[in-house]
Design a protein around this nucleic acid. Structure first.
Lengths: 255, 255
DNA sequence: CGTCAGATTGAGCAGCTTCAACGTATGTGG
DNA sequence: CCACATACGTTGAAGCTGCTCAATCTGACG
């Protein structure tokens, strides 16, 4: 079942999430930082390929990913699987279960992961006492939705290679924000089958698309290392525009 | 430009949105109902096929759809268009622009529409003073995201006919909630090209998929009237499960 | 050295697209 | 009231994108 080990731990690991919120809003107060920190009840470690939350669950806690890769996914009766989101350090994988209550999809680890667990009761208290922080949490669920819109645009309108290029641009950009990508490369710990489940294409075609990206000298992909060989070329092929990731400073009277 | 006419008006038209929020949470207080009502600054009417908000805009108001159909969409450089969401009475078409600030897509009317306009300043005040209502607004943006996940699952994994059947199930279910569908039929004021843009398929194939749905005696579609001939059959073909629309009563200590 | 997961390749096929034509309903100006 | 225009739906034919099935290759690991 979900969590296979759990332990109390120190707090510096919330730093990634805070960096994340601040990537779009530099106005978090020290108090707010502390509130986030104190909202965490404990940390858990979960092995790779384990369901953390399942469709139809009604979680009473939300999980902030501290390290590792996780995904949201849904399946059809005959086994067809769509990955709905990929998550990295600093992502709140199921914050939406707080206002929504019931899960409409599952969340699984891709690699071994560490999560900071935030009880919904603590989130509720934040909404009662910290409206600005509440808006930032709300905002972080809306950035998930913006990513989802790009995935839908990709699945519906982009060719497989354009869609794949867009995913690489997105992941690279997001990993840079949390300092998990070098200047020209990053680790992508997904099998080609998993990449295909995210893009909505078969594993065989995923392989051919990757080969085509290599042939065009846009990326190299050996093992789990992606090297960006031609960022401009990737951007152009993917029509990637990072605006939707909400990274620009967001100073607003109403923020 | 966006709004082509504007006028002050009476309030009963917020009823649909309130019914909407209450479809999932019967605990709205009279005070909260009044707060929503008073947050509306005015109403506007917009002709069909007009952009209400454009990608990259930074709106200072959000728009609650009172009547008519609207959609969110995004396009690629060569004109390929993906409809990202379809909206009916009671939907807040760009509530997410409040926490997000910058639009990552456009919103357009499909038919002539009436919107209730809610200034972000009023929404900000709600987040300061009405935490329960804030959670319900947050929740309504997350239901949009849940719909989006189903559309991605459809675009990525379902066949065109399964995807189309799912869309019909979704729209019928949503229209029922706001009393805009009969027992066995509803009005769908979309061209086949628009349906195709929502499903991510060509207009020609859309036509063939609709014919196949007719041949299977699942629906009839003449003009803009959809008749549900075999609801059970549609549900099965689409693997439709309405849970994600968040319609179940949602009574929670933390709600 | 055998095993296993994952990557790669080839061949044939299905679903969907594109292009182009034609049908049909509605509306408009002369 | 007819001639024409326009928007949308429908049909046919050819072709491309991506799928399935099945085999082979590769590297990591016990």
């Amino acid at each position: 079942m979900p969590h296979d080990r759990l332990e109390r731990d120190a707090r510096p690991e919330t730093a990634t999430f805070i960096r994340h919120l601040e990537a779009s809003d530099r106005t978090l107060s020290d108090e707010e930082r502390q509130v986030i920190d104190e909202a965490i009840s404990h940390f858990i470690d979960v092995d790779a390929d384990v369901d953390v939350v399942r469709e139809h669950d009604r979680p009473t806690v939300s999980s902030l990913l501290v390290s590792g890769w996780a995904c949201r996914y849904n399946t059809l009766a005959d086994g067809r699987r769509q990955i709905l989101a990929l998550h990295i350090s600093g992502d709140f994988v199921d914050l939406h279960s707080f206002p929504m209550k019931r899960m409409d999809h599952s969340v699984a680890t891709v690699t071994r992961c560490r999560f900071a667990i935030v009880p919904h009761e603590n989130l509720r208290r934040i909404t009662e006492e910290h409206p600005h922080l509440t808006r930032q949490l709300w905002r972080s669920t809306l950035i998930d939705a913006a990513v989802l819109r790009q995935w839908l645009l990709g699945a519906g309108q982009r060719s497989a290679i354009e869609h794949a290029a867009h995913l690489i641009c997105e992941l690279y950009t997001r990993l840079r924000v949390v300092n998990l990508a070098d200047e020209t490369s990053f680790q992508l710990p997904l099998t080609q089958t998993e990449i295909g489940d995210a893009l909505g294409i078969s594993p065989v075609h995923t392989n051919r698309v990757i080969q085509e990206l290599r042939r065009l000298e846009l990326i190299s992909l050996r093992g789990s290392t992606v090297d960006i060989l031609d960022w401009e070329g990737l951007l152009k092929l993917a029509e990637f525009d990072a605006t939707y990731l909400g990274l620009e400073p967001n100073r607003e009277a109403t923020s």
